[in-house]
């Protein structure tokens, strides 16, 4: 059916490549775009092209940026002695939204995975060590995910960083704000009990 409208079929095929978007959703999106004014479609196309043309990874922290080094790396108001290590750029955005951290970042672009054979050489660990050896950083906060891969990465980083005499910390485990203990899974409760602290 769509074969008779090649430009429509091509757009559906491209949209269906997005994560979580199947052919049905892609078709719905394509019909939506069809109904939009030309200017709206052009603005979307330009935004996509600009994203690819103007953004890159920061040469210091490997977060996405339009200027190199990125604003987070050159901001004099941030604490240069505190470094937060994350798996992906999305984690930087999550931590920045929380407004709880005023240090700098390092994005690994992945996590160690024994089962997938992803080793340290496939992550941005060597540049991290170069940053640490420069001497300004006194604490590394490892903010990898609480998955097998995130735990493996945290254990590996601790092994590399602690001999450098740099304090190494990890995000706390705990019960989500606003939740009731009755409905929290036992592993999270177990970790929260282990990580209890003085009132």
């Amino acid at each position: 059916m769509l074969d008779s409208i090649p430009s429509f079929a091509r757009l559906v095929a491209e949209l269906a490549k997005f994560p979580g978007v199947g052919t049905k959703t892609a078709t719905r999106l394509a019909f939506y775009l069809l109904r939009q004014p030309d200017a709206a479609a052009a603005a979307l196309a330009t935004a996509i092209v600009d994203l690819k043309r103007n953004t890159r990874f920061c040469s210091v922290c490997f977060h996405i940026t339009e200027q190199d080094p990125c604003p987070l790396c050159v901001d004099p108001a941030r604490d240069g002695s505190l470094l937060c290590v994350v798996e992906e750029p999305q984690a930087v955005l999550a931590i920045e939204r929380s407004r709880s951290f005023r240090g700098r970042y390092h994005v690994l672009h992945g996590a160690l995975s024994p089962l997938d054979g992803i080793g340290p050489e496939e992550l941005r660990i060597a540049p991290l060590l170069d940053r640490l050896k420069a001497g300004e950083i006194s604490e590394v906060l490892v903010a990898t995910n609480f998955t097998v891969e995130g735990d493996a990465t945290a254990l590996y980083l601790a092994r590399l960083i602690q001999p450098l005499g740099i304090r190494t910390t990890r995000l706390a485990y705990g019960i989500p704000m606003g939740s009731e203990l009755e409905y929290v899974d036992e592993a999270t409760v177990q970790r929260a009990v282990q990580g209890r602290r003085e009132l």
Binding site: P114, D116, G117, G119, P120
Partner: peptide, 8 residues
């Protein structure tokens, strides 16, 4: 893959 990871 995990054997290579262990060896490393």
């Amino acid at each position: 893959k995990s054997a290579a990871f262990l060896a490393g």
